[in-house]
Computed example of a mutant assay.
Amino acid sequence: MSRPIRKREKNIGVKQKLKFQELQNRLGIHFTDENILYQAFTHSSYVNEHRIKSSEDNERLEFLGDAVLELTVSQYLFKNFPAMSEGDLTKLRAAIVCEPSLVNFAHQLSFGDYVLLGKGEELTGGRTRPALLADVFEAFIGALYLDQGLDKVIDFLQVTIYPKISEGAFSHVMDYKSQLQEIVQRSGQGSLEYLIVQEKGPAHNREFVSKVLLNDEILGTGIGKSKKEAEQKAAKQALDKIKSEKGTL
């Protein structure tokens, strides 16, 4: 075992190690090499304060995790949105792997509670700093990839990220109407029609209900803060219906 690993272990106390054990238990992921897990949560300020080699912080793992995350998200989008154009796939992937999204993922997993920080960084609120949390999430992905491989990363994302994509968390960049139109045109089934069937709520908090029809048959219903959002959600429901009935988008 190399000197940097031994020194890093020495500077991680029993209490910190127990916290990392709790994290692994909570995630249902147990690292073969726990040192790489520690490194994923080690900020440069901690390394500097404890005079550990700079290569022992999480920046290299962040670099790797960024690439792994982009690959795995790209693969998921490619398989699950076959009607989506290259440009729309790129926009959707960018929304999923951007800093605000990664921060949300890190928050949901309470990753900030486990970051190893120097005292100065701790006192200035580093534990909740968005850029730091986004970096930690990417570093964790990199560490998981090195320790257990790509399939385990995908298993992790199937719990943390993929369901949010499926649920429409990134619908603001997804053009479900175009996808639905493409499917209908390709199959020659007829023409689509969107109807706003209800408007409710006060003027400052309006909600719209939209239905999408194919040859007078209702395919989907959506509710949104704008007519456009309601129509997009109606189109998504229609796509989900088509997928469940035919086993394909």
Score class of each variant (00 low, 15 high):
V136K: 05
V136E: 00
F137I: 05
A139P: 03
A139K: 07
A139L: 10
F140I: 11
F140N: 05
I141H: 01
A143N: 09
L144Q: 05
L144A: 06
L144I: 04
Y145A: 08
L146C: 09
L146R: 14
D147M: 05
Q148M: 11
Q148I: 01
G149D: 09
D151V: 13
K152R: 14
K152D: 11
F156N: 09
L157M: 05
V159R: 15
V159D: 07
V159S: 10
Y162L: 06
K164R: 15
S166Q: 15
S166G: 05
S166Y: 11
E167M: 10
G168W: 06
F170V: 12
S171E: 14
S171N: 12
H172G: 11
V173M: 08
M174W: 02
D175L: 04
K177H: 06
Q179C: 05
L180C: 04
Q181F: 00
E182K: 08
E182V: 01
I183P: 07
V184P: 03
V184K: 04
V184G: 03
R186S: 14
R186I: 04
S187M: 08
L192F: 06
E193K: 15
Y194H: 13
L195R: 15
Q198P: 03
E199S: 11
K200M: 14
K200L: 13
K200R: 15
G201H: 10
G201Y: 04
H204R: 13
N205T: 07
E207K: 15
V209C: 07
L213R: 15
L213M: 13
L214E: 03
L214K: 03
D216G: 09
I218H: 01
I218R: 12
I218G: 00
L219V: 02
G220S: 08
G222Q: 04
I223L: 11
I223C: 01
I223W: 00
G224H: 08
G224S: 09
K225S: 12
S226Q: 07
S226D: 09
K227S: 02
K227M: 11
K228M: 12
K228S: 13
A230Q: 10
Q232G: 10
Q232T: 14
A235I: 08
A235N: 06
K236S: 09
K236E: 12
D240F: 09
D240H: 09
